[in-house]
């Protein structure tokens, strides 16, 4: 007997079952994703002996303040002992310089390519575009050689300057500039505003949303650099936290001061994670619009 009421009841039951399934699957997903972080947090609040014995509990202990104080002020790991405070500062300098630098030079070059006519315009554009195809990983040694030749080894300039060329940022700004109506340019011209004035008073304010979205993505990109700082910096006082953390692990010995290492890991991922969570809207916009 399948009258309308039974069919409706069945449909409702199926809907409820499906929702319950979705909650279960997502809950499980969140658990799998959060578990490594949770255990890291837990590890940062116990003493080294507990962890070294292999007795990592599932709940936080009471050594947190001490561990974080040691991680920030002294550092840990038997092979590597840079205090995290300095490394965090270096990472912040690197991330902000890279993000700011990429945005600045990409805004300028996109502006030049879109709002002017000049010979070799397309050649310039394609040269910039080419960088997309040459990640640092495929030209390690020669780029390193350039840095050494220019005396930029172990400098903040060497650490950041080569990474601020950006084809993606230039492409994004170019796309955006192309959507700005010609009338704006004409109006500016009639009002006697030159190209510099137009850039500063009209284009920049219109680009704020794009700059914010891109800034979030590029900050994370800069903060998470690994291979480049590994090559360019061997002065410990200039080490960034991601590289420093990996060095603390050494060969993964169980006698490591894992509590300090875990506290450093928490410190290393907090800034970019906070940026993503707090600026979620910009983050998603930046990600889906640059598409990488």
């Amino acid at each position: 007997m399948t009258d309308d009421a039974t069919l409706a009841r069945r449909a409702l039951a199926r809907q409820r079952r499906e929702r319950w399934l979705a909650h279960a699957a997502l809950g499980l997903g969140v658990l799998v994703f959060a578990f490594p972080i949770w255990i890291t947090l837990v590890g940062s609040t116990h003493d080294a002996a507990t962890i070294g014995r292999g007795d990592v509990p599932l709940l936080p202990g009471n050594q947190g303040p001490e561990n974080f104080a040691i991680a920030l002020g002294e550092g840990g790991g038997r092979m590597h002992t840079s205090p995290a405070a300095g490394m965090l500062l270096n990472s912040a300098i690197m991330a902000l310089t890279i993000a700011g630098g990429k945005i600045a030079i990409s805004l300028l070059s996109a502006y030049a390519v879109v709002f002017f006519r000049f010979p070799l315009r397309m050649l310039a554009f394609w040269t910039i575009f080419l960088t997309l195809m040459l990640p640092v990983e495929v030209r390690i040694i020669p780029t390193y050689q350039v840095i050494v030749d220019l005396n930029l080894f172990n400098t903040y300039t060497g650490l950041t300057l080569p990474l601020i060329a950006s084809a993606t940022a230039t492409l994004l700004f170019r796309q955006f500039f192309l959507t700005i109506p010609d009338e704006y340019v004409e109006a500016a011209k009639i009002d006697g505003a030159g190209p510099l004035r137009f850039f500063r008073d009209i284009l920049l304010p219109l680009s704020v949303t794009n700059i914010a979205a891109l800034g979030v993505i590029l900050f994370i990109y800069g903060w998470n650099q690994y291979l480049w700082p590994l090559l360019i910096i061997n002065d410990r006082s200039m080490e960034t936290i991601v590289v420093g953390l990996a060095k603390m692990i050494g060969s993964g010995d169980s006698q490591n001061e894992w509590n300090t290492i875990m506290a450093t890991a928490v410190l290393a991922m907090t800034p970019p994670v906070l940026v993503v969570v707090l600026m979620q809207r910009w983050f998603i916009k930046g990600l889906t619009e640059t598409e990488k």
Binding site: P36, T40, Q280
Partner: peptide
């Protein structure tokens, strides 16, 4: 929100975790 933040974790830090 809970699923997107691992994007912010550096590959090397993911390795440590």
């Amino acid at each position: 929100t809970l699923l997107i933040w691992p994007y912010a974790v550096a590959p090397a830090i993911a390795a440590v975790l």
